[in-house]
Design a binder for these strands. Structure first.
Length: 941
RNA sequence: GGGCGAUUAGCUCAGUUGGCUAGAGCAACCCGUUUACACCGGGUAGGUCAGGGGUUCGAGUCCCUUAUCGCCCACCA
């Protein structure tokens, strides 16, 4: 039947029913909506707006609205930040679907569920995109200079940022946008510079002249992980340098041989050991060479001729041999992959041309013994596909072997103050199970990688990124930023504190206990290199400061603008444990306004920043005003400042916290290092830099370590390992408890989706348009176990679009059937219905356990199956007969059963299909005050 | 060269520590349409669990082996 006609008939019939069936009329207000098939396009954006406006993505709101307890267990995830320049692909879609399931499930279980969004500046990738754009206008970055170029990049990045962020919304991600971060913003810059400084001071970051992976195409060095291998055919040439040279050598790269300084043989090789120690002066392809024969047991006598021509400047292995034998290094290839030797035939020739020239020369001179075709894997740069040239350069590295003292350890098996190395830390936290990797087999891969880990080259010769925070003076000596701490403490107990009265801006002296508390603080402050003490002018603060100042031998400076918040009429009244006094003061409209306090805090911050102290500064002040300073300093947005102060865990008397101030080194003729840091350096800090580190924010204390890090297994080394390195070192802690690798999404032919085959790739945005985000989410979950790959096709997504519609229509049936059934009343269930309810409870138990074990692929399938083939096909079908022919008792039993199963399933399905379940929930004729997203997860029985 | 994984219905995959006659979705075929839903219902067919060997009362599941495919790592000149 023609579809339009069909619906026309249905609607017409419904009108008839309304006319002659009064009961239908009472229920129709609820069911009208369900007469048309579920329309995801009409629903999704509207529902997302509803969620966003509710503020429930932010756990602070959940507490404020009494939906969860302030002491509830935290659950936190950071979003693996997509590249600013990216657009949503199926990998992102799978990641967002799974993480949203995790967050929604835990939110419904009453936890403080926080999911932090952000984007990555993706240094090399972004810069090369912008360079390509400019190239179309015939502009090179060198023409316009660093500053101008970066303006172009920033403009481009902020524009594409909005695209990816809106695409994340489309997937239904219940992510807290108020905490959004960017790897290159101010807070993250501070984190990067602090991290760099600490590692430098500990000797873990060093500058060294070493062989690095040079990408001639991208004109930058890259780390070992950014090098990929491609198999190609190559020619292996066996030859002698000259007629009188005694040993033949083999190579696939004859052009590098003009840089040889030695030939290495095995020390026990009878053929060659008589030559060890000799040096031969000869001329090779017009280039004079001085070749020393060395014995090295790394040489395999069985391979090739059993002798290696050593090129220290252009091979990592050879460089290592050269180190062992103190051989000279001779660079013959430059940054443009061209020859830099004096011989006129070779000078400035590309390496490939030079190879041909040298092979011809070898042939002409009859030095070439034979040529063989071999399989060879060549190194290419991950981003640019340029062929890597190993060349020696002065670069910055992180030393993964060096021992240092870990001051404050939360790591099982490593005590505070114990000596350790980055490598050891990285191994320990996975070996001791503090971090679990799912699926487990990747732990093996991880260990293997760590065991072979070499120092990490972190400097890049590109402009976009965090600039290396190092300055050189005219003697090339190294200078780093100064780091000062401002230590805020609160005064000791005052008389009004003791009697529970709000003092605000009125004066009140310290009690004996307060004086003792101040005295107590001195001990820890003595170790802090304090050179200045500043206090509020109110006596309780001044007295505290002076007690400390006397012990430290420092005169106290009094700043009147540090005084406590003027609370107006509230002053002198009793404290209200439910309400922070600042809130009460604001409500009373008699003291300082929020704007005034915020302004005062900004002035104080500026004044503190401009102090030219060599040591740390101690500031003694008051609870509410310190809270405000701390909030402003940590960029809490204006609209969240009051929440920040309300949730401020009031400082114990005379206890404090730190804020770091970084200042560029001062001095004449200082120039900053022109290089930028590897983008993974800042990504490595992500779990805690997003929470405000290096400031000791509430977020950091509550939400770190994060619970889960969910991503593709291709990021195991790039990102996971780097996060573990940075976090164990800087915080002495783990970044996350569980690593969950989702499967890669393949196209319907089982191939990796790629830009080169756009016809088979599924665009998540088009899929959402056609089938709805819920359907896409289900299709990406069902059957996708962790770490395995999965194929996605339009047919699969379509199947779940039908499922959404099935939910929709089953709801319509239930609502029509139960009429005005009172959902709160108790009913006696028939034997059969009781068993259905028991089955439902069993399902809840099973599913809850599997959710905790991250088996979403199973849960999604079970829910689908139960809803369709048990609830709809059996329970609903049976109820039809009962509701027409059954007794009143049986009808009530059926009403209860239908209602209970439907509402329970909506909750269970919500993490998977949030839009359609929320939309249905909102249309149910019950008095629910909350959105489904914050309903309680069904209780396990 | 080393390591990891996969191989179950035409396709995509489940199958928990070994335990009923090996399951699901999609596709196929047949039947069914006023009565929540045709974005539907009922039914049918389809498998030597890659091959071989072993352990066991019992193996898709554990062990060995072979084959094919996929992925990761690697400085054989």
């Amino acid at each position: 039947m023609n579809k339009a006609l069909y619906f026309a008939i249905i609607e017409h019939m419904n009108d008839d029913n309304k006319a002659d069936d009064p009961k239908k009329e009472t229920t129709s207000k609820f069911t009208d909506k369900f007469l048309k098939p579920y329309d995801s396009k009409e629903t999704e954006d509207r529902i997302y707006k509803l969620w966003e406006e509710s503020g429930f993505f932010n756990p602070d709101t959940l507490i404020k609205e009494n939906i969860i307890d302030a002491e509830a267990e935290p659950f936190s995830i950071v979003l693996p930040p997509p590249n600013v320049t990216g657009t949503l692909h199926t990998g992102h879609a799978a990641m967002l679907a799974i993480e949203d399931i995790m967050v929604r499930f835990n939110r419904m279980r009453g936890k403080k569920a926080l999911w932090i969004p952000g984007t990555d500046h993706a240094a090399i990738a972004t810069q090369s995109l912008v360079e390509k754009q400019l190239a179309k206008k015939k502009i090179r970055r060198q023409d316009i200079g660093r500053e101008e170029f970066l303006k172009h990049v920033d403009a481009f990045a902020s524009e594409s940022h909005d695209t990816i962020v809106n695409q994340i919304r489309k997937m239904g991600a219940s992510i807290d946008w108020s905490r959004e971060a960017f790897t290159l913003d101010n807070t993250r810059e501070k984190a990067v510079r602090t991290a760099f400084k600490r590692m430098y001071d500990d000797g873990l970051i060093y500058r060294g002249y070493r062989i690095v992976n040079w990408d001639p195409k991208g004109q930058t060095t890259i780390s070992d992980d950014e090098v990929q291998h491609e198999d190609r055919k190559a020619h292996m040439y066996t030859f002698k340098y000259s007629k009188d040279f005694p040993i033949s050598i083999a190579t696939t790269r004859p052009e590098t041989k003009v840089g040889d300084t030695a030939v290495a043989v095995h020390p026990d090789d009878d053929r060659y050991k008589k030559y060890i120690g000799n040096t031969y002066e000869l001329e090779f392809a017009g280039v004079p060479l001085s070749i020393q024969i060395v014995g090295d047991d790394k040489v395999d006598p069985e391979f090739g001729t059993g002798a290696v021509g050593v090129t220290p400047a252009h091979s990592m292995t050879d460089w290592e041999i050269a180190q062992r034998h103190d051989l000279p290094m001779k660079q013959v290839i430059n940054e443009y992959a061209k020859m830099m030797v004096d011989a006129p035939e070779l000078k400035d020739k590309k390496t490939t041309e030079a190879r041909e020239i040298i092979v011809k020369w070898l042939t002409d001179e009859e030095l070439l013994e034979h040529t063989e075709e071999v399989d060879q894997s060549i190194s290419v740069a991950e981003r640019t596909n340029g062929i890597i040239e190993p060349i020696p350069k002065l670069q910055w590295f992180i030393d993964v072997h060096k021992e240092f003292t870990l001051a404050n350890s939360h790591i099982d098996g490593i005590k505070s103050g114990q000596k350790t190395s980055l490598k050891e830390l990285m191994l320990t936290v996975v070996k001791n199970d503090q971090i679990k990797i799912i699926p487990e087999r990747f732990e093996k891969t991880y260990f293997h990688w760590i065991e072979n880990l070499r120092d990490w080259n972190i400097s890049r010769q590109i402009w976009y990124g965090h600039r290396v925070p190092v300055w050189y003076d005219k003697d090339d000596a190294i200078h780093l930023q100064e780091e000062h701490n401002i230590i805020f403490i609160r005064h000791g107990q005052s008389e009004t504190n003791a009697s529970g009265i709000i003092a605000g801006n009125t004066d009140t002296p310290l009690t004996d206990k307060g004086r003792a508390q101040a005295q107590d603080e001195v001990k820890s402050l003595k170790e802090r290199n304090i050179t200045k003490i500043i206090s509020s002018d109110l006596s309780r603060s001044k007295e505290t400061a002076e007690i400390i100042g006397r012990e430290l031998g420092i005169k106290v400076e009094s700043w009147c603008e540090l005084h406590e918040v003027d609370a107006g009429d509230i002053q002198g009244t009793f404290k209200d444990p439910e309400n922070h006094f600042l809130q009460r003061a604001q409500d009373a409209h008699t003291g300082e306004t929020l704007e005034q306090i915020e302004y005062r805090a900004r002035l104080i911050i500026e004044k503190l920043k401009s102090l030219n102290e060599t040591g740390n500064v101690l500031v003694v002040g008051h609870d509410a005003f310190i809270a405000m300073i701390f909030g402003v300093w940590n960029n809490v947005p204006k609209e969240r400042l009051m929440d920040h102060i309300n949730s401020w865990k009031s400082l114990d008397n005379a206890k404090g916290l730190d804020v770091q101030i970084l200042t560029d080194p001062q001095g004449e003729d200082l120039t900053q290092d022109p290089d930028t840091l590897d983008t993974w350096f800042s990504s490595g800090l992500w779990t805690f830099s997003t929470l405000g580190w290096p400031s000791q924010t509430d977020d950091l204390k509550t939400y770190h370590p994060t619970n889960v890090l969910e991503t593709g297994h291709d990021l195991l080394f790039f990102w996971i390992a780097r996060m573990i390195l940075m976090t164990t070192y800087l915080l002495g802690d783990i970044p996350f408890r569980t690593v969950y690798f989702h499967g890669l999404i393949l196209d319907k032919d089982g191939k990796k989706m790629s830009k080169s085959r756009p016809e088979t790739a599924i665009d998540p945005l088009i899929a959402i348009e056609k089938f709805g985000a819920d359907a896409l989410r289900m299709a990406m979950i069902v059957g996708v176990g962790p770490g395995s790959s999965n194929t996605l096709s339009d047919e699969k997504i379509k199947a779940y679009k039908k499922f959404a519609n099935k939910l929709w229509n089953a709801t319509r049936y239930v609502l029509e059937s139960i009429g005005d059934f009172d959902t709160e009343r108790t009913v006696t269930l028939t034997k059969k219905h009781a068993s259905y309810i028991d089955e439902l409870h069993a399902l809840v138990n099973e599913i809850t356990n599997e959710m905790e074990e991250y088996k979403y692929y199973l849960v999604a399938e079970k829910l689908y199956h139960y809803f369709w083939h048990t609830f709809a096909d059996v329970i609903i079908e049976e109820s039809k007969d009962l509701l027409t022919h059954g007794t009143e008792e049986e009808k009530l039993s059926a009403h209860y059963t239908l209602w209970t199963i439907l509402t329970t399933l909506l909750k269970l399905l919500h993490p998977f299909m949030p839009y359609v379940t929320e939309e249905i929930w909102g249309a149910l004729p019950h008095n629910k005050t909350h959105l489904l997203m914050v309903e309680k997860w069904p209780i396990q029985k």
